[in-house]
Design a protein around this nucleic acid. Structure first.
Lengths: 336, 336
DNA sequence: CCGGTCCAGTGTACCGGTTCGCTGTGGAGC
DNA sequence: GCTCCACAGCGAACCGGTACACTGGACCGG
């Protein structure tokens, strides 16, 4: 492979001139530029990323740290990874996948090996331990998730509070006075999952305003457990006939549970939910819903990180991506 | 951050000696080693991956190239990415995500920037265009998938032929003489998807041997289409009452279609399938099945690639991971 | 005509490691 | 006691770029 020296020789200029042309950081006369460009083309030269990284101390790589929570492992993850990678490429960055049961260790290694210019943290929880090494090393980072305390780090997420409010409104507008609130596993809330908690508290608050009584039910992990729990919920005559669901596994499983009991939507039950857009691509989910926006969220995350890398001391940003709309699918029946 | 020079000064030795200790490539007396180790610990030194890469011309990074085929079903993808990343880490490699509508371009850029030491190609198709730049640059690579012609490149995949045979045997053993073969979208076979074609031809062959008549049905893309197609298949009284499914979207959707028609498994239909293990984690899939083995396949892929990087001219390997077993879930009824 | 300014382009140091030929020391062998 | 060798450690070159102080020539005004 050709080096910058080969190009310089071929073009009859110095290495530094070639570098100027490549980086565009310094004015070079059009004629010289043309010579260099020709040499580059002839030799099929392209810069060695590692060498440039060493010289500039910029790797042009972002570390994407995938957390590990059994409770929420979902088909949506791939969509996020791909969206992040696509967005990164647009900004000239590549993406290094940092997966490890112990995410903190992955972050530490990436920092100490100076393998990346910044991090994007997925599956953020309150008091996320991965922030410690990042903050200590003063590394740029963006959280995909919105913990109560972002500890001076930029963060983006879907506006789960707005989503919850939209769904509650939808039920209330249809005249419902009470609803079962099908939640994620308790562990997830306890672990400090930021979206789970934000959705829940917003739903609670809005429901109170709108005079909607919520009956919260946490659904445990595992397909059988999900199915059994849903069945129990649906079966109990005491329970409201409207369901507000924030739990992808439950959304996916609900049709089975309904089928088990011979129930129909919306005739027997009204259902609204917030779930990964990915789910709707795989199943005919006929529940009125608010969908997550992986592409928009990831795009924003990468842009914020790029900006942060460029100016490490700018003001801290928090951005909530408001879900554009609620998708009515006729799963809600007007109630008296 | 400390450099190797800092460590050398602290330990009172030369930079090259520190390097010898770090790489272990040269004998260093135990006393000197101890001094160096102490200095490393004191300064919290760790090598700059980029600098090492430049010096050794080894990036210790693998490029994972995610293909782009709408027709495929993606919840399994995340499992593969994570398994690859985990396996890579075990071998001391990191993983760079290469996603791009045009995978060839991604490969080209990674090669010309010398960002990785080798590639792992996902979603391999026959005559995969991504192989051209790889072979031209003589880069190490491993295919996750088994095209008819691997063009001198190592390849691993699940043994879809064996899986298909296991499923056909299962139906035949239960006394079935005919079955609907629910296939992936036609596009996928036409595109040369390696696993789709291998499964299909093996199923056909084994079915012939066992005297099982197969009625092939390709299922189009999109949830509504899947559901409609399945409904049509189930409704047609001419169709056999056993189903052999190789199409994750159809597997996921089948329960809905059955429900639509009020059919029960195994009373009304017998069902066997081969699908992503991931599906079973989210849903109660009560179909007797052979599951894919992302962890095993990825582990093998990374090991093969590491070996190939170490010795570029070793003999080409092809490895098929035989699914360990068929998981009986009572979805097959004995037939006369 | 001279001194100052501007400007394209050059040379060199440097980023942080690895590698390899060389050196100085100590012990073995005679 | 001297030579020779083995061996631990050293120094310098190198990997492939970037950055910055500098140079030499053109151009300007006085």
């Amino acid at each position: 492979m050709a080096t910058i020296g080969d190009v310089a020789r071929e073009a009859g200029v110095s290495r530094s001139t070639v570098s100027s042309v490549l980086t565009g950081r310094k004015y070079v006369s059009p004629e010289t530029q043309a010579k260099v460009d020709a040499a580059v083309a002839k030799l099929q030269f392209s810069v060695n990323a590692g060498a440039r990284a060493l010289a500039t101390s910029r790797t042009m790589a972002l570390g994407v740290v995938v957390g590990f929570h059994e409770a929420e492992f979902s088909p949506a993850l791939a969509a996020y990874l791909i969206a992040l990678s696509d967005a990164a490429r647009e900004q000239g960055y590549s993406v290094v996948l940092l997966t490890e049961p112990d995410g903190v260790e992955a972050v530490r290694r990436a920092i100490s090996g100076r393998q990346v210019d910044g991090f994007i943290l997925l599956n953020v929880v309150d008091d996320d331990p991965r922030l410690e090494p990042i903050n200590k090393a003063r590394y740029p980072a963006v959280l995909l998730g919105m913990p109560q305390d972002t500890r001076g780090v930029d963060a983006v997420d879907l506006d789960f509070a707005a989503g919850a409010a939209m769904l509650v409104d939808h039920l209330a507008d249809a005249g419902h006075r009470e609803a079962v609130f099908v939640k994620w596993p308790e562990e997830l809330y306890a672990a400090g999952s930021t979206y789970a908690n934000r959705f829940a508290s917003s739903a609670r608050e809005r429901a109170e305003q709108r005079g909607l009584r919520l009956v919260p039910i946490a659904v445990p992990v595992g397909p059988e457990q999900v199915r059994a729990t849903l069945r129990a919920v649906l079966q109990d005559p005491e329970n409201p006939r409207a369901l507000l669901i924030h739990n992808d596994a439950a959304v996916a499983m609900l049709p089975f549970a309904l089928h088990d009991l011979g129930l129909e939507v919306p005739a027997d039950r009204s259902v609204v939910s917030l779930h990964a857009a990915e789910l709707a691509r795989l199943y005919v989910l006929s529940f009125t819903s608010v969908e997550s926006e992986p592409a928009a969220v990831c795009q924003t995350a990468v842009e914020m990180l790029a900006k942060r890398i460029a100016s490490p001391d700018g003001p801290v940003q928090k951005r909530l991506i408001v879900p554009p709309h609620i998708e009515p699918k006729g799963s809600v029946q007007a109630a008296a």
